[in-house]
Write a protein that binds this DNA or RNA. Structure first.
Length: 503
RNA sequence: GGCGGCGUAGCUCAGUAGGUCAGAGCAUCCGGCUCAUAAUCGGAAGGUCAUCGGUUCGAUCCCGAUCGCCGCUACCA
């Protein structure tokens, strides 16, 4: 039986264009999805855009457009960026789509019917110029808008509130019964800390806003951010559509999120689902931030990195490999141009690319250009098994850097194996054939294991090895067992896969 | 203020119910090789595992204190 695997990224707010942070999470999700396809899972990888709210309304007004027209110009920039980064999302959800409206209304109605959404008064300090509420901490001297430097007004607004406060015990009990659902573990502890610290009801609607989804029972209000944004994960499963069984996909296997949105995804969201009688997610994988030269990327510091600029330097696979291998998912990573080029040269050009080149050359010179079969008892077989095991456990833990490190271990072992045997010194014959057959088999396994990170290059190596089919048709573990390569096909050298970058 | 985390080779980081646990990669140096994208292979060097105490036969790993750094502290995706 084929098992399903459903993974999501946060939906990205369309008030800015795609940047490195978006790309980071999206690449991790893509690599994870590709890995699970290799495992034979029926994968659904979802990403999308968040298009409602005041800031979009304001940005649209400033651009002299309707909000919908404004979103229609930005959302494709995300979709296009993911295409260029070779992201294989199976769906792209936009919160302005009818299916999303249906899902949000369904979820809201369920929580309302359960008695967990009630009308109440939201009061707060409000800056008329910003059209925004502020907390005391955000204000200067407790009463002055930090942006406009003018006193704020005390405003009250009727809002519907979600009674999050009722869910503290239920959430704690659920997390207690489901250890390890949040990875890495220390992020799970942070979520528990947030819950233990006490939960306050939060408002789920606004009357002061019109760019949003109307509440099904009271159209004067539109849904405020949480019920709108978080629900996207259900929308894409068909939740809210009576003709579809959304449980074919739900519950989700992993929500990939940033550490800054733990509260919303690991506290609000499960409580909302509990209230609505919807199963809770099977897992969350929390990532850190990708800092830029040690600092948080921000417009104000002028260090916003556009990922699409980088692929001109190191290629799509070079960029993908870098963000996956260089950072330990869960902790903050540090992006630097030097690091990018360093990783590219050492791991891709010198190791993977060079190995493929030297193997192809020796096969050409000593084996007549046709790949010989490996031996079953090769010393490399054990290294291969170690790499496979390491890759499996790494991806299973949503730790791409560990999975890739294990994979690169086999590259290193193969290079060492060639040095020991020095096939280039021998005359053509059985001895050389054996060595090169082993190297080709190792390269075949490496190519499969590396393919979630460097899909384009993997496919190219696959073709040059002369193996039929495609890398994406391979299955783990059956196709990464030693001996799968039978030889007999021409091996093509081709141009360097990753030309060294000399600065 | 409260809660939590971090501080291990030049750099990025692993690590341990406390006893070959002092590790990896990159960078550096020496040597080999020359099939390969001046790539690769072997070796060396490099750390009192932040500081000071305590527990213990024994602590990088446990406890306390100190110094330094960083998150979160509730309606912003």
């Amino acid at each position: 039986m084929v098992s399903g695997f459903y993974v999501t990224t946060p939906i990205y707010y369309v008030n800015a264009e795609p940047h490195l942070g978006h790309a980071y999470t999206t690449i991790v999700g893509d690599a994870l999805s590709r890995w699970h396809r290799l495992l034979g899972d029926d994968v659904m990888y979802l990403t999308g855009t968040d298009e409602h709210g005041l800031k979009i309304r304001q940005a649209a007004d400033a651009a002299g457009q309707t909000p919908q027209a404004f979103c229609d110009t930005i959302a494709p920039k995300f979709a296009d960026a993911w295409t260029r980064l070779n992201i294989t999302n199976d769906d792209f959800i936009r919160t302005t789509e009818p299916r999303h409206y249906a899902a949000v209304k369904e979820l809201l109605q369920r929580c309302y019917d359960a008695g967990d959404i009630e009308l109440d008064t939201y009061s707060g300090k409000y800056c008329v110029a910003c059209e925004e509420y502020f907390t005391d901490e955000e204000l200067l001297d407790g009463s002055v808008c930090p942006i406009h430097k003018r006193p704020v007004d005390h405003f009250e607004e009727e809002n519907y509130f979600f009674r999050l406060s009722r869910f503290q015990d239920r959430l704690l009990k659920w997390y207690d019964e489901h250890p390890g659902v949040i990875k890495p573990e220390f992020r799970g502890n942070e979520a528990l800390g947030l819950i233990r610290g006490g939960l306050r009801d939060f408002s789920v609607s606004r009357t002061s806003l019109d760019w949003g989804i109307p509440l099904p029972w009271d159209e004067r209000h539109v849904a405020y951010v949480w019920f709108d944004a978080l629900t996207n994960y259900l929308s894409a499963t068909g939740f809210g559509d009576p003709s579809v069984d959304y449980t074919n996909r739900w519950p989700v296997d992993y929500h990939l999120i940033g550490k800054d949105i733990i509260r919303h995804h690991c506290v609000y969201w499960p409580a909302m689902l509990m209230s609505a009688g919807v199963d809770l997610p099977k897992g969350w994988a929390v990532g850190g931030w990708l800092l830029v030269d040690g600092e948080k990327m921000a417009k104000s510091t002028g260090n916003v990195v556009n990922p699409l600029d980088l692929i001109d330097v190191v290629g799509v696979d070079g960029f993908r490999y870098y963000v996956l291998a260089e950072t330990s998912y869960g902790s903050d990573g540090d992006f630097s141009f030097e690091g990018l080029v360093g990783r590219y040269n050492s791991d891709l050009a010198n190791n993977l690319g060079n190995l493929a080149a030297r193997v192809a050359t020796v096969v050409g010179k000593k084996c007549g250009g046709v790949g010989p079969a490996p031996r079953s008892d090769s010393p490399l077989a054990e290294a291969a098994a170690t790499a496979v095991a390491g890759a499996i456990s790494g991806w299973d833990a949503v730790a791409p850097s560990r999975a890739l490190d294990a994979t690169w271990g086999l590259i290193k072992a193969t290079n060492a194996y060639l040095e020991i045997n020095e096939p280039w010194k021998s005359e053509p014959g059985a001895e050389v054939d054996t060595v090169m057959g082993d190297a080709l088999e190792a390269l075949r396994i490496i190519t499969i294991l590396a393919s979630p990170a460097v899909p384009q290059t993997s496919e190219l190596i696959w073709q040059r090895l002369g193996i039929s089919g495609s890398v994406t048709d391979q299955r783990i573990p059956s196709d990464v067992e030693w001996g799968g390569y039978t030889g007999g096909a021409p091996v093509e050298k081709g141009t360097p896969l990753f030309p060294r970058i000399v600065s």
